[in-house]
Design a binder for these strands. Structure first.
Lengths: 119, 119
DNA sequence: CACACCTGCTAGATTTTCTTGGCATGTGCA
DNA sequence: TGCACATGCCAAGAAAATCTAGCAGGTGTG
């Protein structure tokens, strides 16, 4: 029986998302303690706009999640936390996943299908 | 005692290297069977020049290795094979590795040091 | 009201990565 | 010699990712 790991596309998304020093540090910081955007930006020493970009990518990949909360004094704050994950990176695991990678032509076909016609 | 995983920079290199569909397919193909460049290019349906670029990156990251061999009829052929590896991708493992990420300023300092002077 | 926080967005410049196409080398064989 | 197949490299364009700077909105406090 197969171990049934992630699909190729999922693995690829996770890899591409984690392949950035800022995002690794974000994961590291959030795994210690959940925080809100502005504070995290100060801690990491990067601009808020930049951090938001990285947070969006991490969230899109399913590696972190966000909750909008109101602080005691009524300010809206967006808290982020890591969402537990575990991927094995071995030749075999990759070989499994690679089989389900969508091809360039498949992508093109799918997009064309969506364009011309039926919802 | 710490589990002593990869350094941040090493992990980052591996992630960046694997975050590409072609390179995932290369790992998959090589994990099935070692082959030489031209054949692999035909199998994967990509140009040789492109494949060589990806192979260079994979080799630089330590994920594959190459041996130059002479075929029975005397042609030089470069065989590649996967080099066994296993990385755990979890929040904790990343938190560990992130601590040893080199910073931008460190990089700049190092390069300046190399430029002006002493070998 | 001004200030200090919090949030979100986007246009544009910059940098990096990816990809193609061409050229050069070498071997064996008809 | 000409063809097939192997290797390597590089220039240059195309595409994608990154980052900055600036704008917008909200709340509570002095």
């Amino acid at each position: 029986m197969s171990a049934s790991g992630p699909t190729g596309d999922e693995l690829l998304t996770v890899l591409a998302t984690l392949a950035n020093p800022h995002r690794l540090r974000v994961i590291a910081a959030l795994s210690r303690e959940r925080t809100y955007v502005s504070r995290l930006a100060r801690d990491l020493g990067i601009s808020r706009a930049l951090l938001q970009l990285h947070l969006r990518k991490l969230e899109a990949a399913g590696l972190v999640s966000a909750q909008l909360e109101l602080s005691p004094d009524g300010k809206a704050m967006k808290f982020y936390e890591v969402r537990p994950f575990a991927y094995r990176l071995t030749p075999d695991a990759i070989a499994d996943a690679a089989g389900t990678l969508s091809t360039d032509t498949e992508d093109r076909d799918r997009q064309e299908g969506e364009r011309d016609g039926r919802t």
